[in-house]
Design a protein around this nucleic acid. Structure first.
Lengths: 217, 217, 217, 217
DNA sequence: TATGAATGAGCATTCATTCAT
DNA sequence: AATGAATGAATGCTCATTCAT
């Protein structure tokens, strides 16, 4: 008698997911058929349905995978001892992985789907909350160290930061003639201006520890 | 009768477009069938195809309509005599029309489509360029009047602003429990912090014409 | 009050027919839409239906036109005083007008249609009968003059001749690599061999007026 | 189950093809819908498309089937030891299988399609070439045995023979009142007259082995 | 357990024909 | 007499999903 091997099962599941992701990136959710995923994952249609109950579930699982990946990365970044190095590391990741056309296309599609489908909305919300929480932590650290304006609401600022990065990423991909470095510079510029602690009022003698001014324009 | 009536034709076209938009808002591009649009527009399938060559063309026409609407609105706003009143007017519009769930869903879907389909990408690009141009004008006016940091690159700032508004709007809709006023406040807060002219260095005696500080948190 | 001008009506009808024929030649019956014919004939859909009750009727009318043309031509040829010059003239026409790809395509399509549709079959039959009759006349003349074997059934031979020409024409167009001159030569070769009077038996003293031998191979 | 059964697949494919052929024979290519074929083959629309990529491919496959059938038959006939028995066998087949109205209708339609569609043209060309080759062989044998005029170009004669048979078959179907036997007789008459070796000139003493004269008219 | 053949509703699109004007 | 907008049934084809083996 064959015992079910849950590890092998999980491994196969991840293989399918990876294949699906590759397809989705290339052709989008609506442009990818189950048959194509089956081909890519070297599995039969019937077989695939032992791992996922529907196409929607595949998309959702993939989205959740992505969520864990991004969340993990962010969490890691947020644990950097210093606010400054954390934010720098963040920029780097942004330029590195967010520049990919297919990644942004997928994100946009996921967002569009989430706007209609509660199941996806839940996943998106969870991702968002986790990310906001991590960035919020970073910002609070920055506030504690005097690098970030203490008057800012950390949660709001975190959301804002994500929103800006998101919007910029999409513009980068859709507008085409828009280099990743430019986007990176614009984002960095925005972050520092938005978060910066105000200059000390005349007479005050506070250390200038706040986020350094960046060359603009 | 002999005379072709281009007005009536155009009117019918707009009716169909409006019906299509309503369908798309409710169920999305992929969730709406031509038959549904026909039902909504009270026209037969064959009739519809006298006005549009394909479903894609309907979507594109609708997107362009939206483009003209938004561009027009923005242009109007940008022509306000004063930077401050312009930006206030902008916030108001943002809260009023961008709050609509279906509107954002449509925008997200369009974006997702634009990431794959060059025809839509072109439309999106044109919209974006027109909007950036108008906001750039606004920002330059603000820089001239000393309300906006002259060190800022106006075009970059305009793009940034749109990106942030976009990202925020989508978060508002997808995160659900996120009130328009909060989003509005967050956006306003962002804009003023991002655009504000630096405080005069100690010793300088410059009028404090820059964007007033807003209560935060 | 406008009087109906039957001449003008007939003229317009022929214009439409000519336009339709051009379309059919280019794209075939099934590949041509009424709308295309309307475009080509510069007439509205409604207008066209004042002249013809259906698409089928247009095809039929065109076929009948063709019939009259071909019949007329053949009749003219058949009236040549001499069998030999008649048959030569026929070969020339064959090479000239039957070589055209679109002509053969149309003929093939008409034949296919006639095999299913009695209305077309009738037209085809009439054409055929008229042509057979004329060629029969020619052959009889040839028999009278001793150029054609008197033992031949003239009607059968006429049908045979048409069949061979038809089949050869289609092969020429469909097989492609097959020059009109080759086809012409093959046809001529066939006709002379098929029709030729037998050589006089030894001892007979008959003038050698029969169809001259053609160089073969 | 694990094993793919290519035999069963092929069998089902042939079933579908047979059903399609029946439909096409009855109503023609354009008059037969995929739904009708599905009904006849007892298969769903989706199922059918597992075997054929398009309606066109079904027609093409059927045409190729026919090609193999006819080619095979001809090849068999051509291998007869004696020219005379081969040609007799051919006439018999012609009368037997070419007499069928639906068969000729199909052939005519295929020809019409081939005149416009290169894919069909290729198939038609291959069929033709195979048939010509076989008949050419027959004719050469006849020339070797002195039954056929050695002056004839065998390839040309083979084409001519097919053309005549084709044209005659179509006339038979389209003209309606035209019995298979008459057509058969006409064809035989044609073949013998066309192929016959010339009578020996007076003085020559050659055996009269050439094709025997047939009673005419 | 895995296969892949089969399903069948659903889709966008076409087009000969009609008819109010 | 002529227009051209409108019809609507029909078409070829797709694809997520099921199930006998």
């Amino acid at each position: 008698m064959r015992t079910v091997n849950p590890l092998k099962l999980e491994a196969r599941r991840r293989e399918i997911l990876a294949a699906a992701q590759a397809c989705f990136r290339e052709k989008g959710f609506h442009g990818t058929s189950i048959a194509e995923i089956c081909s890519a994952a070297q599995i039969s249609a019937g077989g695939l349905y032992r791992y996922f109950a529907s196409k929607e579930e595949i998309i959702a699982a993939m989205a959740e995978d992505e969520r864990e990946l991004v969340s993990g990365m962010l969490h890691e970044v947020a644990e950097a001892e210093d606010f400054f190095s954390a934010i720098e590391s963040l920029f780097e990741r942004f330029s590195t992985s967010f520049c990919d056309r297919s990644h942004v296309a997928l994100a946009a599609e996921l967002l569009a789907e989430a706007a209609r489908n509660p199941a996806f909305a839940t996943i998106a919300r969870q991702t968002e909350m986790a990310m906001v929480a991590d960035i919020e932590t970073m910002i609070r650290a920055g506030q504690a160290s005097g690098q970030v304006d203490p008057a800012l609401d950390a949660a709001e600022a975190a959301t804002m930061l994500l929103a800006a990065a998101d919007g910029l990423g999409m513009r980068m991909v859709i507008l085409g003639g828009f280099a990743p470095e430019e986007a990176g510079k614009a984002l960095r510029n925005f972050v520092f201006r938005y978060l910066r602690a105000p200059l000390p009022e005349p007479g005050e003698t506070r250390e200038r520890t706040h986020v350094r001014r960046v060359e603009e324009g």
